[in-house]
Design a protein around this nucleic acid. Structure first.
Length: 651
RNA sequence: GGGCCCGUAGCCUAGCCAGGAUAGGGCGCCGGCCUUCGGAGCCGGAGGUCCCGGGUUCAAAUCCCGGCGGGCCCGCCA
């Protein structure tokens, strides 16, 4: 079963963690995380701050080092040496042995893999969850790229992962779309889009923007006539409408706009659609569903380009119709934290904090509450009795735990929804769902901005993901074609698509999640260093070298030749990938993997330039170099796959 | 007003959680490398008050306190 074997480097680190944990009595995971390459290569290949831990455990550091050294020897790691220096336990690897062992593995068709977590969990990752009213924009794309990469990392780490998309069909937004479709006379969104040769979500987005903006404009203009409106705002809206009218795909604009003008209270009409939908009345029930489903079709086609799919699609309305939301409401009413706030039914969050979080160290840690933050009560229902988003989210979070029998639920949601997410988790705690509350993670990331302004998709002001992908593909196409003039059309097309996906996905995960990101299309589409295509190119280059070299004679790899500085360094650096990925999974930090891959590719590129593989006259050395290239390519491919980036053999 | 996040060369970014040696990359700029495995590359150069001020420490980009700047949140919106 070579498929489940770890590479020797990763096994070494795992064994080292066992031994260090035994010797110091420290937590194995904590120890494992701290085993890292020292700042300088001459110190060794791996280091651990043993002094700190030995002292804490009351053990003599040099004795501890000795016992670790013996432990390694007896478990088959005779090829490493251990020394204590500057408070650190440093480990030096015999690169020759590492190379031989890798050659033996690869000769049997083995492939690198991420070491499994000690405790595999069942994890739900909910991400993207865009309103089904317009195409996915670059804001959603960051969510998608982060969420999908997290799911891939967690899976690779041995967790059982379930990805879910939450369809927000019980909000006013879809009602706007439905009203617009009615006025435009569009019965079947999908067929209409087909007829107009538009993507279905694109057509929906236009209708939605026109409807929403028209309503705003009509309401504002009525106010102005009554002498209390904002004229500047009205003018701005008129300009937006003029632009939308220009992009009218099929003579719908006037129908929608005048239709809205003729309605006494358009906002009330929208609310009425929603009210009827929530209570499951026809025709709204099928109208809303059909519209939302059509838009989701559009999402799916965009997402599949990015290699993203979902295990489950959850409809907010199903939570209402199944009674899950009313059950939560009942529980809330029976709870001792039920209260009245501003005249509405609410959950007394401050009381939950005081009674359930502050005395509970585990909860305090999980919630990381600021010292003086006063989280307001969470209102459960409107005075008209309908539920609010947050209430439904409480029901949904519980549903996710139940539906997948999950140990952990990760919600990839923008940082702007921090307070709401906190309220939801605290409400769960208050209702007695402590395990769920403590194991719900709000994976927050800073939202994407356009240069100088926020995206306002309700006005049609957003950068659509489809457009960015198309533009990326167009640029890649030009590049690929000029490099491969003789290649078949189809191949060029496929390759350009891979490059486009690589460019977009990499750009969206390389910056750490809490940093705000401003969309700069030119930067995303930059195919040079520090980019997805750079990694892909490096992969293709390694593949090219191997193709030219031909099959590797694994037995002929000369271990001594692998000890030469540049080769040794690359061999060992490459071997880190599985551990870097494992750590990125544990830390929920895809950007760490992205950063590592860039550095690794840099090192490969500068090495291969100096140390020719194919022109190496010595057979043993040549096969050693081929092994290094192969090792590099396999690991890079694994890393790219975890980021959802295709790894082309040629480009 | 309160809270959270961010602040590292002209621009973008790593390092910060677990303090330690010349703060790594990239874009752009300047100069080299196509008879040598793929130039989406390689080699070299210029460019830095790590936002500011205190504090802790033998040692601070990193930890603590106080500011400043930007963003977000504090809805019977989602």
């Amino acid at each position: 079963m070579t498929g489940s074997l770890l590479d020797p480097y990763t096994s070494l680190v795992e064994r080292l963690a066992d031994l260090l944990s035994e010797v110091t009595g420290a937590d194995r995971l904590e120890v494992w995380r701290l085993i890292q390459p020292p700042p300088r290569e001459e110190y060794g290949d791996l280091g651990f701050p043993l002094m700190r831990y030995a002292r804490r455990a009351g053990v003599d550091p040099s004795r501890a080092a000795e016992s670790v050294s013996e432990g390694l020897k007896t478990s088959g790691f005779q090829w490493v040496s251990v020394e204590l220096a500057g408070g650190y336990l440093n480990v030096k690897i015999d690169a020759g042995v590492l190379a031989s062992e890798l050659a033996a593995l690869y000769s049997k068709g083995w492939r690198p893999r991420v070491p499994g977590a000690v405790e595999p969990l069942r994890v739900v990752v909910e991400h993207t969850s865009a309103n089904p009213i317009h195409p996915l924009h670059m804001g959603h794309a960051r969510n998608t790229a982060l969420g999908d990469t997290l799911a891939r990392l967690l899976k690779a780490r041995g967790h059982v992962v379930n990805t879910r998309f939450y369809v927000n069909d019980a909000g006013l937004q879809v009602a706007y779309l439905v009203l617009g479709l009615r006025l435009a006379g569009i019965r079947d969104l999908r067929r209409e889009a087909e007829k107009l040769r538009l993507k279905v979500d694109e057509l929906a987005g236009w209708v939605y923007a026109v409807t929403h903006t028209s309503i705003e404009a009509v309401e504002e203009s009525r106010k102005v006539k009554a002498g209390e409106g904002d004229k500047a705002r009205l003018e701005e809206l008129a300009m937006v409408l003029a632009k939308l009218r220009e992009s009218d795909p099929g003579g719908f604009f006037d129908k929608i706009f005048h239709g809205i003008e003729s309605i006494e209270s358009p906002e009330a009409a929208v609310q009425e659609i929603m009210r009827r939908y929530e209570s499951g009345e026809e025709p709204e029930r099928s109208e809303v569903r059909r519209a939302a489903e059509a838009v989701l079709e559009g999402f799916k086609s965009t997402l599949s380009r990015l290699g993203v799919s979902f295990d489950d699609w959850d409809w907010e309305s199903d939570l209402l119709w199944s009674g899950a939301v009313s059950r939560i409401l009942e529980e809330a009413r029976r709870s001792r934290y039920h209260t009245i706030y501003k005249g509405a039914e609410a959950i007394d969050i401050p009381k939950i904090i005081k009674e359930l979080v502050e005395p509970d160290p585990e909860a305090r840690k999980a919630f990381k509450l600021p010292r003086t933050l006063e989280v307001p009560p969470m209102i459960l229902v409107r005075s008209d009795g309908t539920t609010l988003y947050a209430t439904r989210d409480v029901a949904y979070t519980l549903y996710k735990f139940k539906a997948f029998n999950a140990d952990k639920v990760i919600n990839v949601v923008g940082a702007d929804q921090r307070l709401e997410q906190l309220q939801v988790r605290l409400t769960l705690l208050g209702l007695g769902y402590r395990r769920e509350a403590l194991n719900t993670i709000h994976y927050d990331y800073e939202i994407v901005r356009l240069p100088g302004r926020r995206m306002r998709s309700r006005r049609g002001e957003a950068v659509w993901l489809d457009d960015v992908l198309e533009e990326a593909k167009a640029r890649a196409l030009e590049e690929v074609r000029s490099r491969n003039p003789e290649a078949p059309r189809e191949w060029i097309e496929e390759t350009a698509e891979m490059v486009a996906v690589g460019a977009v996905r990499f750009a969206l995960v390389q910056t750490s999640a809490p940093k705000p990101v401003t969309i700069d299309i030119d930067r995303i589409l930059d195919l040079q260093e520090n980019s997805g295509p750079y990694l892909q190119y490096t992969h293709a280059r390694a593949a090219g070298i191997l193709a030219k070299h031909g099959p590797i004679d694994w037995q002929a790899v000369d271990p001594e030749a692998c000890k030469e500085g540049g080769r040794r360094s690359l061999l060992i650096k490459t071997s880190r990938l599985p551990l870097v990925a494992a750590k990125a999974a544990d830390d929920l930090a895809p950007e760490d993997l992205a950063t590592y891959l860039l550095k690794l590719a840099d090192q490969f590129n500068s090495w291969y330039q100096r140390d020719s593989v194919i022109h190496e006259p010595d057979k043993g050395a040549r096969e050693c170099k081929a092994l290094i290239v192969y090792h590099f390519k396999e690991n890079l491919a694994l890393g790219l796959n975890l980021l959802g980036i295709p790894a082309p053999e040629r480009m």
